[in-house]
Design a binder for these strands. Structure first.
Length: 954
RNA sequence: GCAAGGGUGCCCGAGCGGCCAAAGGGGGAGGACUUAAGAUCCUCUGGUGUAGGCCUUCGAGGGUUCGAAUCCCUUCCCUUGCACCA
């Protein structure tokens, strides 16, 4: 049923070309959301992402803007290559994922062995589901990032940045498989997913004419170096460095580490080295020049770093325990003839850290009860101490230049100085191992030296990007400082790739442009995409784009000038982008790149104006994840609940930047609420005798308080909802527009039960209410609203209807206070009745006399519960003769005023009389409203306070 | 570790100096309707009180203020990001 209605309106919108936006005289609004990478089916989390801009677009359209909301598909990149490959190989996990989670029909599955087919299949799927959601997208501008026309655009973009000197060649460490001769991404790994690459400082210890190189994460501990460790079991070699700052030096390292380091430096193997011959010899500490002995140790790994380690037993638990082991191993000491030096070797304090003494490593070894260097707990000890010292440690005062400073700062300083003096170099290694390629071979860290980089570190460029950020509205606001941080922190970004789908680097065709780099200014492409989609890509040269986007004239433009002019005008009409929406995790890359790229290419007036950042999706409290199968596909959700229910739920369960939680029970609650709304509309028609006409509601003057109250509430909710939508608060807006308004309507309907159901005022109020209500819900539940609008005589599409103007003058404090007065009174009476045992016949109500209002006013002017001041002013103004009574009342007011908002005197007698019948009905007794205390047997009248009449139950 | 955000009633979540015992939803209890169930509607959902009140609560501790869930300080805990990947 609802599915048919939704289909019907989607078709009507399409036939009327409602969302095909072309330049006109209206004010424009251009909104985009990060386009999807369609490597799987759309789930409800994606649904939220794309519903937010749709709701906003629909809202702004009703406000009278010419809104552009386009969509395209980001299909460049490597992941689909891996997926296709796994499908090709019939990897069971992948097949299961695509068949059962992404729900690809079994007969279609084999086609997905081709990456192109994956992106085609899912982008088509996305397109269809987006239509089923009722998104108001201008599909004439749809494209995929591998379309030849788009590639021409990316080529232009790359050339433009290149010419400005913002793309440079440089070196960069990557995970690399020496067997495949290719960089490897995480998805290409058999083992070691997510393992990071560490930059290690390689310290050079001279030993005659050769150098023992030791790799460390903690170069500052060089001050406490006592000896070197070599593992007698490991195979060492001597190599000569052939290039770079260490050229000509002869290094000793393990041959396993050579496997890695040779990918980073040009090394020539000279000969094998027998560690036994080196153990016992002395090397020179490069910093202090003192002589240090070489000792044997079994914990030294041949794979990590260089296979040679310098020992700092005060702060490195492994070094400490290895030294203890050695001291006890008389046999070994004897073998290498190092009795004296071993005996003399003691830890040297380097780092002072709270909670530890002089030799932190000793303490932690003892704490964890580690008994020898091959105990796996050594690893935990190292990790713990490393973290503590890094965050809380200080280098001991006695070291010149660096002493007394925090370890965290000293580390980089020492490293920089050592390298400058050429007593250290840099190598890279994995933080953990093993890292094994799919082909079964050990991966290495390779330095690619022909990699292309975006120079995001460029100071001037960063300054401009920050300026761009400064001029933007960021929602939520707190993210802005985050952005600022990222813009400054971004280093050069490797922007070329060897594998994946994408556009070639125009001047170096062996590279592809990295997928985050090819989608930083594509919002400008949307504005002209409808002209380019059927064009011969060969016509789209740089000259063309230069003219359209930057107004640079050229003889090389191959398209007729009139068309170029039209295209350029369209770009200038839509640009700059008003709003960019994207997920939280893209703040540090995509969204920042977007700002960088815009400032580099476009003049300031074309820089983006606003960014909205999204939170994540949860499913019944757990993180949504396709790969774990923990998702609900959007299509399934639509089929089960209808698009409107899904939309409404997604918009109302959390604000866009918060994490939302798809809870079936609450989705069902939303469904019932929407159903209630439809029934309410039918009820309004029924009250109107079956011929409700929303286009033509006869004007009528509203007199009764409760009707005025309903109108006031309606206006208040429209106002709140409008203000919330302006700043993308879809949750607040939908709460106001549906849930809170419904609560007031419920109350209203209850209140008017006693009124003649042919009452003209009620008919009018309900009609006005419904008319506006349909409108303010239209952005959230467009199909339902379109249907109701049409059914009850609305003119045209509600999607095109004008957004309701709220009238501040109708949002009357006094009217609200009146209803509050009545409700509080009823509540109080019933509460007292509950507590009183005897039967009640009559309810007497006494109102506060004028002087109490005067006193309340004085209290309000003072602004705080200061009884002394109140008394002073009251007596001066001579508001009442009995000072004791004034004092008593002042005390009460002092208490009351912190709980009640003062809005001036209201005519309580009139208000209560207006609703007397209602009060009697609610309380079940006759009500007598006294304007004086001529009948007051229990002396209750004196309790009357402004907004709080006295009650006497008889 | 660094950076950002956050800890609110059974649960999710609003509130961000006084209309706050704290919106709204979910869950629970009771009632109306119904042959019954469901849906819908009403009431209650911190404690206590024989006159509309009082007491205790917003991670913990301290402070500012006539007044703090809201502001400041300290402390504990949680979530996210830290890159060559969309």
């Amino acid at each position: 049923m609802s599915e048919n209605i939704e289909k019907k309106w989607q078709k009507k919108w399409q036939d009327a070309k409602l969302f095909e936006s072309d330049p006109n005289d209206k004010e424009k609004l251009y909104i985009t959301v990060a386009f999807p990478y369609p490597s799987g089916a759309m789930h409800v989390g994606h649904g939220r992402t794309y519903t937010v801009p749709d709701v906003y677009a629909r809202f702004k359209r009703m406000e009278g803007y010419n809104v552009l909301f386009p969509m395209a598909w980001h299909v460049t990149g490597a992941p689909v290559i891996g997926i296709a490959d796994r499908i090709q190989r019939k990897d069971p996990w992948t097949l299961d994922l695509y068949e059962n989670v992404h729900k690809v029909p079994k007969d279609k599955l084999p086609e997905l062995a081709d990456p192109i087919n994956i992106v085609k299949y899912f982008s088509t799927e996305y397109h269809n589901v987006m239509n089923k959601m009722g998104y108001s997208i201008d599909w004439r501008r749809e494209f995929r990032t591998i379309d030849p026309t788009y590639q021409k655009f990316v080529t232009w973009q790359a050339n433009t940045l290149y010419k400005k000197g913002l793309i440079k060649q440089g070196e960069h460490p990557v995970k690399y498989c020496p067997h495949d001769k290719n960089p490897v991404g995480d998805h290409d790994l058999l083992e070691g997913e997510g393992v990071g690459v560490n930059e290690l400082t390689l310290l050079k210890f001279k030993c005659d004419d050769i150098i023992l190189v030791t790799a460390t994460l903690r170069p500052e501990t060089i001050f406490g170096a006592t000896n070197l460790w070599l593992n007698p079991e490991v195979h060492y070699i001597l190599v000569e460095v052939e290039k770079g700052q260490s050229k000509g030096e002869k290094w000793v390292m393990s041959d396993d580490s050579y496997y890695n380091i040779s990918n980073q430096k040009e090394l020539k193997i000279i000969k094998d080295i027998n560690p036994e011959e080196l153990i016992g010899k002395m090397v020179e500490n490069p910093l202090s020049h003192e002589k240090l002995p070489i000792f044997p140790a079994s914990f030294v790994s041949s794979e990590y770093g260089s296979g040679v380690v310098f020992s700092e037993p005060a702060d490195a638990p492994a070094d400490y325990i290895a030294l203890q082991d050695l001291k006890q191993n008389k046999e070994l000491i004897k073998k290498y003839d190092i009795e004296k030096v071993v005996e003399d070797t003691e830890p040297i304090n380097v780092v002072t850290v709270k909670g530890y003494g002089d030799i932190p490593a000793k303490e932690i070894i003892e704490k964890l009860q580690i008994t020898n260097q091959d105990d796996p707990k050594v690893h935990d000890a190292t990790e713990e101490l490393y973290k503590t010292e890094h965050s809380k440690g200080y280098l001991s005062e006695r070291f010149p230049k660096y002493g007394g400073k925090k370890v965290a700062y000293v580390r980089d300083e020492v490293k920089k100085d050592l390298i400058e003096e050429n007593i250290a170099d840099i190598i890279y290694d994995f933080a953990e191992r093993p890292v094994i390629c799919r082909c079964g071979n050990r991966c290495v860290v390779k330095i690619m030296d022909d990699q292309w980089f975006m120079k995001y570190s460029d100071e001037e460029w960063t300054k401009k990007a920050k300026e761009c950020l400064e001029g933007e509205t960021v929602i939520p606001e707190e993210i802005k400082s985050n952005f600022d941080y990222y813009l400054g922190w971004l280093q050069d970004w490797a922007c070329s790739r060897r594998v994946g789908l994408g556009t070639r680097v125009p001047w170096d065709k062996k590279w592809l442009i990295e997928p985050l780099t090819d989608s930083t200014i594509y919002m400008s492409y949307y504005t002209i995409a409808k002209y380019l989609r059927n064009m011969d890509p060969e016509l789209l040269n740089d000259a063309f784009f230069n003219k359209v986007f930057l107004d640079i004239d050229s003889d090389d433009i191959k398209i007729e000038p009139e068309l170029v002019d039209k295209i350029q005008k369209e770009f200038n009409y839509w640009y700059p982008l008003d709003w960019r929406l994207s997920a939280k995790d893209l703040v540090g890359n995509h969204l920042s790149f977007l700002m960088f790229a815009h400032t580099a290419i476009f003049p300031k007036e074309k820089w983006p104006k606003g960014t909205v950042v999204f939170g994540m999706g949860l499913l019944e409290g757990n993180k949504m994840s396709s790969s774990k199968g923990n998702v609900i596909l959007l299509d399934d959700a639509i089929n089960e609940y209808s698009a409107d229910v899904v939309r409404l739920f997604l918009m109302s369960s959390a604000e866009p930047w918060q994490d939302f939680d798809w809870r079936e029970k609450e989705v069902k609650g939303t469904q019932r609420r929407l159903q209630w709304f439809r029934e309410f509309a039918a009820k309004v028609e029924q009250v109107n005798g079956g011929n409700l006409n929303l286009t033509n509601i006869p004007e009528i003057e509203v007199k009764s308080n409760i009707n005025k109250w309903m109108i006031a509430k309606l206006n208040q909710h429209i106002k709140n909802s409008t203000e919330a939508l302006e700043v993308f608060q879809t949750r607040k807006a939908s709460q106001e527009a549906l849930f809170l308004l419904k609560k007031d309507v419920d109350h209203y309907m209850y209140r008017i039960q006693h009124i003649n159901n042919d009452d003209e005022e009620v008919k009018y109020v309900l009609s006005i209410l419904l008319k506006n209500w349909i409108k303010i819900l239209a952005p959230f539940t467009p199909h339902t609203c379109e249907e109701l609008w049409n059914k009850y005589g609305g003119e045209g599409f509600v999607s095109e209807a004008s957004w309701p103007e709220y009238d501040d003058s109708l949002i009357d404090e006094e009217i609200e206070k009146s209803e509050e007065l009545i409700q509080n009174l009823v509540k109080d009476i019933n509460e007292i009745k509950k507590m009183v045992d005897n039967d009640v016949n009559k309810i007497h109500i006494y109102l506060a006399p004028q002087w109490k209002w005067d006193l309340y006013k004085i209290a309000d002017e003072i602004g705080k519960p200061d009884i002394g001041q109140m008394m002073g002013r009251a007596i001066k103004a001579d508001i009442y003769s009995d000072k004791k009574e004034i004092a008593n009342t002042a005390k009460k007011i002092s208490r009351e005023m912190t709980k009640t908002k003062y809005i001036g005197k209201i005519d309580e007698a009139a208000i209560l009389n207006d609703s007397k019948a209602y009060i009697e009905e609610e309380c079940g007794n006759e009500v007598i409203i006294h304007t004086d205390d001529s009948y007051d047997p229990q002396n209750k009248a004196r309790n009357a306070m402004p907004y709080k009449p006295a009650i006497f139950l008889e």
